[in-house]
Amino acid sequence: MNSSETIFSETQAISQTVANLPTTNPFTLSKEYFEFFPITLLRTIQKSELKTLSIPENYFSSFPSKMLEKIKQEDVNLELEELAPSLVGMQKQNPFHVPENYFPSFHATPKKDQAVIHTLFSYKKIIRYAAAACITGLLIITYTINKNNSASQLASVQTSSASDLSLESIVGYLDEVDEIKDGNDNDTPITAENNLLVDINQETISQVLQEIPENDIKQFIDQTGSTEYKSLN
């Protein structure tokens, strides 16, 4: 179908000149080239594969952290050797067990804690304070009103009585007050003679007692139980 003849006739149809041109290869090439090419190619591939030797994924990115971990581990071991050599040989195995598929199925779902709302003004508190303030206010108002009333009443009484009284009566009252004061100011000692309205002395008492019959006195003593008895006669 795509034989030389077909192509020749196709080219001839387009250009007779080109169709008649030689199809021979003018380029030169050593005879051994194709003989050795597969071998040299395989060597090149092998060399390139050596260069691109496979390394684990993320090897270089994780290398520094892994090295640091190893260094730290060595430090820990050295310290342990000094402190407790018997513990060095012990395997650091975890004795605890975790339920199967715990970590793959673990979902850290944060609890939707409702935020504690701190209100600046509590109505309950305000109501209490307001009630207390009202009561206090009422008491103060009542007290002040009463005080004002009594004061005004006294003032009105004083003013009314003062206006009703004459100057002479006021002066007389003041003199009386002065006299009472003067009387109180006397420092005379209060004696039985001064104080008693009846002047009773020893003789009077003896006379009174002599007038009381002897039997009455004895009866009095018997009733009261008094042992002291002296005949007045």
């Binding site: 380029f27 090439l29 194709f34 190619l41 591939i45």
Partner: peptide, 27 residues
């Protein structure tokens, strides 16, 4: 290799260059 080489060589002309391309193709 031969058919591939001559196709490359006719485009690139120079053998050394064509050889480089040949190696790249088969790699």
């Amino acid at each position: 290799q031969e058919r591939i080489y001559w196709q490359i060589r006719r485009l690139i002309i120079n053998h050394e260059d064509a050889n480089d391309v040949m190696q790249n193709v088969f790699i």
